[in-house]
Design a protein around this nucleic acid. Structure first.
Lengths: 226, 226
DNA sequence: GTCTATAGTCCGATAGAC
DNA sequence: GTCTATCGGACTATAGAC
């Protein structure tokens, strides 16, 4: 879950096509990416309510008209931003994270790593949640929210059981991943709102115990199917 | 968790004081509340990005100037909206919900009731989450997000153990409530994004098992302290 | 591909009649 | 307490020079 820097480029450049004249020169692609990253910065800074094209252009170091040269509309830019976030997460998975060998221990390590990450990237997490909500209510963009979640589920799921595990195990990995993600999203909101570190730490411990138990239960069910 | 209708009036009228000339006549108070409810409607309809004072005024059936007569600024109105949501939840607790007698069964019933509620109030939940995020990043309004969460925690906590339980039990009730809320918030986001009802149902069942286990563990710890 | 300049719209907020 | 009318500014988007 560490900052995967710019490994996301490749993926987010290919993106929805909305990104304008296919005639994409080297420099053009860089500018396009600068605008996306500028939008992310501006979003983290001031929230979606204050996220205007002017602010984005300034944050990216380009003129307003340049922004509109690369994106037909503000909406298509926001979609590209969400895609960039997904690509970044995808890249983070690819560069892999070394983890304990027992699945239950991996689950625990993953939750702890996520919790540390959440604590030091408050603005980023809020921004991402805002964008997800934006996608959820923007007609025709709901699929983006689903893609974002599936990327996270793949990410967590693959870290619970390696890619070469059998189908049953991968299915279990995804179920646990979904549940881990639920807890993490819930803790993000609650920890930022309550600002009670000791309570949040208790919540993380409870979540870890619950996830270890869930994984154990699913594995036991597999060995002794109904 | 059923719609508590208008029981929230009293509370939200008293509110932050920002609500303008204390000289509040009967009719004036009604107008003020109509504006707040209009804002909630408009928010559920189009999201916080499209939530303009003009739209709110139209949705409330008042003129733009009237809105500004009751609220000094758009921000103070949004704060009043969040307070209204909190008051509504508070009222919902007061009118109480009949539940099973065993605490563990109450926890399960509560989660199931919340899940049914979430499924039929998508727009409302998204709106509320958007407002919470708004409060979290609006300088000086972070306390509102905390108040909102504490209202929910009280609500759930009181339903796990009655008010007349001893202090230990009430503390345990609140811990379980926090954890239940984390799961519910996480499921809200994930279920809307993934639109996979069978997965969400599995998640709810897993959450119920986890919460029953958590409550049991906390009670066992209390009887046999470290 | 990036710029300046500006069109055209919509915003939050206020003045002042009733 | 509610209205009409309007201000000044900020917004998204485009036209057209370079």
């Amino acid at each position: 879950m560490s900052e995967p820097a710019d490994a996301a480029n490749e993926t987010s450049l290919a993106s929805t096509g909305r990104g304008r004249p296919a005639g994409a020169t080297r420099k053009g692609l860089e500018t396009r990416l600068r605008i996306i990253r500028g939008a992310r910065e501006a979003l983290e800074e001031g929230g979606i309510e204050a996220l205007t094209t002017r602010r984005i252009a300034a944050s990216a170091g380009v003129k307003l008209a340049t922004l509109h040269y690369y994106f037909d509309s503000k909406e298509s830019l926001l979609i590209a931003v969400l895609e960039d976030l997904i690509a970044e997460m995808d890249a983070a998975y690819r560069q892999d994270v070394s983890l304990p060998s027992a699945p239950e221990d991996r689950v625990e390590a993953l939750i702890r790593a996520s919790w540390r990450y959440i604590q030091r990237t408050r603005g980023k997490q809020i921004a991402q949640t805002e964008l997800t909500l934006y996608a959820l209510r923007t007609k025709g963009s709901e699929w983006l929210a689903a893609r974002q979640y599936n990327a996270y589920i793949d990410f967590y799921g693959h870290l619970v059981f390696e890619d070469d595990a059998d189908e049953d195990l991968r299915r279990i990995g995804r179920a646990v991943a979904r549940q881990m993600l639920i807890g993490i999203d819930g803790i993000i909101l609650q920890s930022y709102a309550l600002q009670d570190l000791s309570a949040s730490n208790d919540d993380i411990e409870a979540h870890i115990i619950a996830m270890r138990g869930y994984l154990r239960r699913l594995l036991a069910e597999r060995d002794r199917p109904r």
